[in-house]
Amino acid sequence: MLAIDGNLLDFKRLDLLALKESPVHRLDPRAKVLTTLVFILCVVSFDRYELAALLPFALYPVVLLALGDLPAGYIARKVAVVLPFAVMVGLFNPLFDRQVLLQLGPLDIWGGWLSCLSIVVRALLTAAAAIVLVAITGFPAICEALERLGMPRVFAVQLLFLYRYIFVLADEGGRVARARQLRACGTKGLGLRHFGPLVGHLLLRTWERAERVHMAMLARGFAGEVHTRRQGRFGAAEGAFLLGWGSLFVALRLYNLPHLLGQLLTGN
């Protein structure tokens, strides 16, 4: 069950990155959330065979990575996790789509290969954008931003509670799993007969914890409404960030930069 501890540490590490100090960390979260959404919409709105025009979009995660002083290797590893899935789905494309769309010297390139690669690049770009967003903003700030953009309060509070107790419960789940494994004496796997009581126990403990949390909330005057402090201001820097990146994305969406660059370089 080392995987559990590994997962949790990984999670904690991403969470800690948000506590860093940098110009992009300081921006109001709303600017970052909106910019990320524009980014994703631009990326996914490309035609299925588009490949080259997607590449310049890598600039956004790369620049934020650098400005936010994030560990590139770690973020790259987190992004790479989505690869197998994208490749698996994408690999069906060459099977079904064999029209020749491109010739690279003597090579005929099927449309399926193009769209397969396109899927992989899309997956990498959108995953990178999401993970970089968390790393430079932090989950609670993202919730706050979404709430200020119209997400219902009940749901925002739900997200915050969930997030808070992931750390506690993953620890607890890890302990339960470890205790079982240490007494399993090498028998591999956990049968359903024992799974029920094991997870059921965890569930009961969780339920009791929820009751205690509720008690602690009542003791401090909770009356159905969770108040949080709102900080951050959507100022000039935020406006510039959103507008600057937003117009860049739209421009990159409209003009195929690599093509233009390639024409320039090859003299075509």
């Binding site: 739900q158 509670f161 808070r164 419960l169 929820a210």
Partner: peptide, 14 residues
């Protein structure tokens, strides 16, 4: 309010 949040975390752990 706390129950939903904590049960969500439970699903993660489970």
């Amino acid at each position: 309010v706390p129950l939903m949040g904590v049960l969500g975390a439970f699903v993660f752990a489970a």
